[in-house]
Write a protein that binds this DNA or RNA. Structure first.
Length: 273
DNA sequence: CTTTTGACCTGACAGC
DNA sequence: TGCTGTCAGGTCAAAA
């Protein structure tokens, strides 16, 4: 479940449970992920303590007491489970055993995700070199966005999903934000009017924040029962709603393919022009 | 340079 | 009960 709100939700769940915890054992699958992981780093993290966990873009960063870091990216299908008795399963790639008996398990069937370990400052890692702006930061405002869009002729939806420009917005939240702003996903970024830019910034912050709030509401269940996370899927206005009536105007939602991704929009509420 | 496409993987689901 | 095709929340290298 890996866009900004989901990653942030998971990070908050981890923070609540494992801060200050000692790692007593660790196991890795050793299978090849998106980026080659440091082989057998599990040995290097044993007897170290987790001092800080935070999110950078869609990456989860776990800082240890010697300032080394474990970096996890969930890719498309990655999950993190936290609990005392998690049954081992097929695509577990990293299992951390903590002194309290709690385990943190990173499971990713498709292996589009990443697990790696770094003893160097993390800014040196390629992952973090070309990342764009955090959409929930104060720096992300209409002034910033209008400057950034003015240089791009790409469809606004592809623009929003480009992590070199803005981080954390994936396929779902790009669709939902554009609907909330009433903007057609195919519209070239540089053609957005000032008014649309203002609306879009607002929509993105609103959508991400309310998704985060929904994720947070099921966080406790997630941590305790290892079940599913997030309740925002019940609030989707367009994502996955092809041919269903728009909640605003009852026009059937349309789907098109944009940069290889399914794109949902209301042809009336998000008319071109 | 910018933008799009294809590749990376497994699993779930629809239709035959 | 298969089998086949399609689709899936991301990112990167390569092509256009």
């Amino acid at each position: 479940m890996p866009e900004l709100p989901e990653v942030e939700t998971i990070v908050q769940g981890l923070q609540a449970v494992v801060k200050g915890e000692l790692i007593v054992a660790a196991q890795q699958s050793g299978l090849k992920m998106r980026a080659q992981m440091v082989p057998n780093f599990s040995k290097k993290i044993i007897h170290k303590t987790i001092v800080e966990i935070y999110r950078n873009a869609k990456y989860i960063v776990i800082r240890l007491n010697d300032d080394s870091h474990i970096i996890i990216h969930l890719g498309m299908s990655g999950r993190i489970l936290i609990g005392e008795d998690i049954a081992p399963s097929k695509h577990d790639h990293l299992i951390l055993h903590l002194a309290s008996g709690i385990r943190i398990v990173f499971n990713d069937p498709r292996r589009f995700g990443t697990v790696c370990y770094s003893q160097e400052p993390i800014e040196k890692l390629d992952f973090f070199k070309n990342l764009g702006i955090e959409p929930l930061s104060n720096a992300f405002d209409s002034t910033w966005l209008s400057k950034a869009t003015s240089r791009s002729s790409a469809p606004i939806k592809s623009f929003l999903m480009n992590a070199n420009i803005i981080v954390g917005i994936g396929n779902i939240y790009a669709c939902e934000s554009l609907f909330a702003a009433g903007i057609n996903p195919e519209k070239p970024a540089k053609q957005l009017k000032r008014k649309e830019i203002v609306k879009l910034v607002d929509a993105i912050k609103q959508v991400l924040a309310s998704a985060l709030a929904s994720g947070g509401s099921t966080l406790r269940d997630y941590v305790k029962s290892n079940g599913d996370v997030g309740g925002f899927q019940h609030h989707f206005q367009v994502y996955g709603r092809k041919d269903q009536a728009c909640f605003q105007c009852t026009t059937p939602i349309k789907m098109l393919r944009l940069s290889g991704r399914s794109t949902y929009y209301c042809p009336k509420c998000q008319a071109k022009r």
